[in-house]
Structure formats: C-alpha cells, structure tokens
Amino acid sequence: MDEALKKQLQVTACKVRMGIIEGVYNAKSGHPGGSLSIADTLTYLYFAKMNIYPDKPDLPDRDRLVLSKGHTAPALYSTLAQRGYFDVEELKSLRHVGALLQGHPCIHIPGVDMSSGSLGQGISAAAGMALSGKISSQPYKVYAILGDGEIEEGQVWEAAMFAAHYQLDNLVAIVDNNGLQIDGKISDVCSPYPITDKFKAFGWHVIEMDAHDFDSIEKAFNEAETVSQMPVAIIQKSVKGKGVSFMEDQVSWHGTAPNAEQYAAAMEELENTLKGLEG
C-alpha cells in the first residue's frame, strides 16, 4: 500500500477508535472489544474501498455493508461519522432515549444499509442484496461482517449454502476472528474451528487476513475482487480490544463500558497513538 494512504488510514482508524470509546463511555454500556477489533477493516472499506456517497446515502448503485455482528455498532457509527454521514457529536448520545444512534444498527440511520444485531441474520440479508444486484446487473458489492462466535448460529450456514449455490461473487463476508465470545474463548465455548475449511467446504473462496495491517487488508480485498462465480470469505485474524492496551485480548471487555478513569486512560493512549502517527 502507498505509504501516504497507509498513514492516512492509520490516523482515521485511530479517530474511529476514539469515537468508539467516546460512544460506549457516554452510553455507559455497549461492546468496545469487538468494535475495536474491526476498526481498521471498516476504515479501509469506507475510506479506501467502497463505492459510496455520504451525501446521497441511498444511491441504488452504492456498495453496501451489513454489520451482521451488530453489537459492534459503535465501530460502524464512528466510521460513518468520520466519513461524514452524520456529526461526530452524535456518538455522545449513543443508546440514549430519543437518540439517532440505536444500540444495534438500524436501517433508518444515514449510511446504515440494514438493521442487524440478532446474530446470524445479517449475512442472509447481505446475500439477498447480492442476489438483487446480480438479478439487475448492478455493479455494486456487498460486504458483511460477522463475528467468529456468531458463526455458531445455524442461519449463517444456510446463508453460506445459498450464496455459493447462486454464485454470489459480489458478496464478501468478513469473519472477525478475535477468538473470544461472551462466555470465553470460542475454542472453549463451542468451537466453530476450523473456520477456513468450513467456508471452503461450503463452496466459498477463502482469504486469510491480518486485521490490523493495512497492507494485508488491501491485499485481501483486492484478491476478493478477482474471484468469480464464488462468494468470498475473508477470515481476519484480529485482536479484541485492539488499540487500547488494557482492553486487548480480554473477554471482560466484550460488553462492558469503561468507567471515568478507564475512559481517560483509553483516550490518553489513543491520543498518544494519534500524535505518534501525525508527528
């Protein structure tokens, strides 16, 4: 990847992370861990990959993204705010009564392509959108982001079968493999491994990616575009809580908001990261 672009994306991803912390802190609830693990991927997609129009969020030919792991809405909202879909200030009222930003993605929020959050459902809607694009020969791509715990849901595999059967090569499912779910390690709870082999067996083209390395991210999404007649699964190896050291790889940060002290520490760390990048 071009070094200037990489630097720019790193800066934006850091701001996205700050927005996640800001939102979850002000909501006094939410899911920081899995939001931080997808921040780089979302940043890449919305700032370097997707064909989107923040001033015209409903344009029919736009690329679409369904956050199937909808509990990590703070990451999507923060990315959309950075991209100009709505004011960054909105993040401060996340999950508040009467606020724009609901606890899980809602289709009525500018830039949100599908309501989601009940796990396993977003991938089906994404497959429907991809099928629709094929039917009408529209050029758009559909991205769906799933949790590695989420793929324990049976509906994911119904959708996987369907997408392969209808050769939806305009569909890219990203599985966020941070290895943790609410009750512990995914390998301990009810293991969905081997993830790569499962998607291959279902007739998908599978790519493995480092979720926190923009070179790897760019390479994976570029490869996805070369695939024809098969849907693409990108298994991204990620770190839950990435970017805030005391949250990294800690299952306890799956669905807990930071207190005032932790908020200050997280923001200070991210500000230092930002200074380092911009300095």
Partner: peptide, 24 residues
C-alpha cells in the same frame, strides 16, 4: 424471477429482506 432457497426458511426470510432493501 423464482429462487429456491432450499429447506432453510430462516435464510429465506433474510434473503427476502435483502431483496426488499434493494428495491425488489
């Protein structure tokens, strides 16, 4: 204009949602 989803009603409803979200 007919798509069989196989014996998988949950996915079928989700696919229908995706089709509707894109104007069908």
């Amino acid at each position: 204009r007919f798509f069989d989803c196989g014996i998988a009603e949950a996915n079928m409803m989700g696919v229908a949602a995706g089709l509707a979200a894109t104007g069908k």
